[in-house]
Design a protein around this nucleic acid. Structure first.
Lengths: 220, 220
DNA sequence: CCGCATTCGTACTAATTTTCACAAATACCT
DNA sequence: AGGTATTTGTGAAAATTAGTACGAATGCGG
């Protein structure tokens, strides 16, 4: 009880990254529970749904405040609201897609980003044949216009689906335009300055880390 | 996240899962180095390319054997071969895609799996309008034929891109047919019996874990 | 061939992450 | 109202993961 700031509700800055990465899963489960009409949920129940120990859930949440009631659990709607606020999911995010090839088109047509508050408001490609084309209601812009459009449309997140060899260059340009979060689909990990976040979507790496377990390994 | 680490490791060498997950990245870098004509590489150089400490690379490799030479480093071609053997990447893997909607089509048309030894040899869908269609040279089969085709084509890995509500059911059927590794694109984490591996591709979770850092958090 | 610069492999140490376990608070039953 | 069953939040312990540092090889230049 001696820790003053530690026991306050606003202690957020020092939450480990691994904890932050779990919060969106909690948000997802809570959203479903809310739809199902649940009013209260315990860390025990959440843990079962997420295949995680109840202690971990309580510990994770404790980095951000005290949201539960002993003997009762967490108010689904209240905890959900708090977590969305913490993650910045209480408002919309404007997103650009860079690279309108096969993959970029699939991303532009994918309806799964919008319900979660990510609005794709611009698409870019370097190919003059593609620029001007309209996909899923969006007209593809030239990369020349990147700076202007990113500024005017207040874009802070980019989804990058360009050929591997252009990825680092595109990411550099995006960061120079003020983008601070990049979701990259190329099979490399772009380097960025501190303060910029990158997540890589790399299905081949995922497959390759599973084949290890499909292979017989002598105990040696 | 891990359920029961004691029961996870049976006869297998005891390399932590987090180490196994890094090996494919080593393989990727080594492949590139080999193409560039490099014959030898040190943990120092590998570490720079991967943004990890040299010690971590040496430690990771030491779980599987002794591959380097003091004062010299690692033979690129030799280390690459050994890692591919460890990961089971020295031969081909037959893969099925289940769900031929927009996403499934994009996956079937994606050329990036083949060079890494993952051969998509079957596609399944429940929609009779889609069954029989040919995409990227593959004729879509009905889900009825799952068991037969998985057996006859020796498929041990499945890529699942079906609507969320059907995902668990499809995964259950796949596991019943003998599939032991699943790459899932739906925004849930399918539950499987021990011994079956699942990796989820979930771009929304990735985005949501970045928005935290784009949001101002009072320090106190 | 000798000394010096490299670099591995690993025992040891540090940091991080997870789990345990328990006081305190709450709900509910009789 | 009193007793019992829940369940949180959190220090402390345990487990896992990463990093340090150094002995032992190895190669090279003179």
């Amino acid at each position: 009880m001696a820790l003053d700031s530690a026991s306050q509700n606003q202690r957020r800055s020092d939450a480990p990254e691994v904890v932050v990465a779990r919060l969106p899963q909690y948000v997802r489960i809570l959203t479903r529970l809310l739809q199902e009409g649940a009013e209260v949920v315990s860390s025990q129940q959440l843990g079962e749904k997420l295949q995680v120990t109840p202690a971990q859930i309580r510990k994770d949440l404790s980095y951000f405040g005290r949201f539960g009631k002993q003997g009762r659990g967490y108010s689904v709607i209240h905890l959900l609201e708090r977590l969305k606020l913490i993650l910045g999911l209480n408002s919309f995010w404007n997103v650009a897609v860079v690279g309108v090839g096969r993959l970029g088109r699939a991303i532009l047509s994918y309806p799964g980003f919008t319900p979660d508050g990510f609005h794709i408001v611009a698409a870019f490609d370097s190919n003059p044949d593609v620029v001007g084309e309209t996909i899923a209601g969006l007209t593809v812009s030239s990369l020349e216009e990147l700076d202007e459009v990113v500024s005017s449309k207040k874009i802070s997140i980019a989804i990058v689906a360009v050929p591997t060899e252009h990825t680092q260059g595109v990411v550099d340009r995006l960061v120079a335009c003020g983008v601070r979060a990049v979701l990259n689909y190329a099979p490399i990990s772009p380097q960025v300055r501190e303060g910029v976040r990158v997540r890589n979507i790399d299905p081949v790496l995922s497959l390759q880390s599973m084949t290890y377990y499909l292979t017989d390994h002598p105990v040696d």
